[in-house]
Nucleic acid binder design. Structure first.
Lengths: 216, 216
DNA sequence: GTCTATATCCTGATAGAC
DNA sequence: GTCTATCAGGATATAGAC
């Protein structure tokens, strides 16, 4: 079976990358777990980095397609509408059977802050376009926020989301006891982000002239 | 000079770990950059992981000491007081000359979400105690928040902070133009987090019995 | 397409002279 | 404390038989 070999490699790579990290997982680990030959990875994918790209593309393809559909359907959205259009298409996959999506989301969250730029780029290049659309749509719902303040707050939200993805599957959270259900996590994230993004802008004693101009 | 060799290794390791990541930086990279002999790393630090621990300990020691002092001095604090007691002792170091602290903060932010548990543990073990105190003090300022909601929101804040640390030194932010000054970043983070943490709790249609009980 | 065998390189760590 | 030289192992990638 040729197509099965590719899928078996993708499944094993996804799980091992999520559990041990990309750099700490060898191709031997993957082919052993998948019960395929070592050389099959290079035959089907070309390189280890291309395998990582394929892992992201398999699940991010449908997710990003749904995100675009939801953005297209938005009419005069508020902050929460835009946030949910971006986040829900990913989080709702947690309701599917098996833990494949949970592992994938952990991998996404961790790779997003990876220390190695080459590895991080494999993910970033697949969310750059949808991410730009998301940022633009979100900023449009916050017209009174100075651009640099929006910029900061947008990154706070991205960080909160990435961290949630990276650790929502984690058993041993260091500082707290336990985490709520997937749907509750999404609701909590949206509530938190909506309030944070809509907080009144500081009177800004040391804000730049350009930003002050943007306030009008 | 013996003490200088240790410092030179620490400086080079900090910079290279922050720029390329721990796994992608070899001891040869470090000793070349530091202009010391390869064997000096194992002589002075024992292993590569122990070197990483030493990099964290050097700067986190004074920062955490100041955090404890500020927590001890708190009297009937609100959410913002607790947040600043934890965050300010680190962020204020950005005002010191040179970019050593900026590199260090980037390393902290990235290591916090590292895909490899062994690497992440080198950092976590040095912030576990102060982190637990921070979480406890913060929760005390939000007595009306159900514990599981607080738990989620606390992690959102941690993610926002880690992401900010990891990328505040980054030139090429993918989605936005530029980032404001260090002091403004801290103010923005605090404003965002205070609003997010104090957002009213959702009426909770599917909350667990224990959490409902905690609301009382 | 799948497999074995291997090329080529780089890693962290160390032994032992100075 | 510092250095040279090297060990032992693991990595990715590939050549070539089947």
């Amino acid at each position: 079976m040729l197509v099965d070999t590719k899928e078996k490699i993708l499944d094993a790579a996804e799980e091992l990358f999520a559990d041990q990290g990309f750099a700490s997982t060898s191709l031997r680990d993957i082919t052993t777990e998948a019960a395929v030959n070592l050389a099959a990875v290079n035959y089907h994918f070309g390189s280890k980095l291309d395998l990582l790209r394929a892992v992201f593309a398999r699940r991010l393809g449908p997710v990003n397609a749904e995100r675009f559909e939801r953005f297209d359907a938005l009419e005069d959205p508020d902050v929460e509408d835009v946030l949910r259009a971006f986040v829900a298409p990913l989080f709702k996959r947690l309701r599917e059977p098996g833990d494949g999506w949970a592992k994938f989301m952990q991998l996404v969250g961790r790779t997003h802050s990876d220390t190695n730029d080459e590895i991080r780029a494999c993910l970033i290049e697949q969310i750059r376009v949808i991410g730009a659309r998301f940022a633009g749509a979100l900023q449009a719902t916050l017209p009174d926020l100075p651009p640099d303040v929006f910029s900061s707050r947008f990154h706070f939200f991205v960080g909160a989301m990435a961290h949630t993805l990276a650790f929502c599957r984690h058993q041993d959270m260091p500082l707290v006891s336990s985490l709520p259900e997937p749907d509750a996590i999404l609701d909590n994230l949206v509530d938190f982000a909506v309030a944070g993004l809509r907080a009144p802008a500081r009177s800004a004693p040391a804000r730049s002239a350009m930003s002050l101009e943007a306030i009008k």
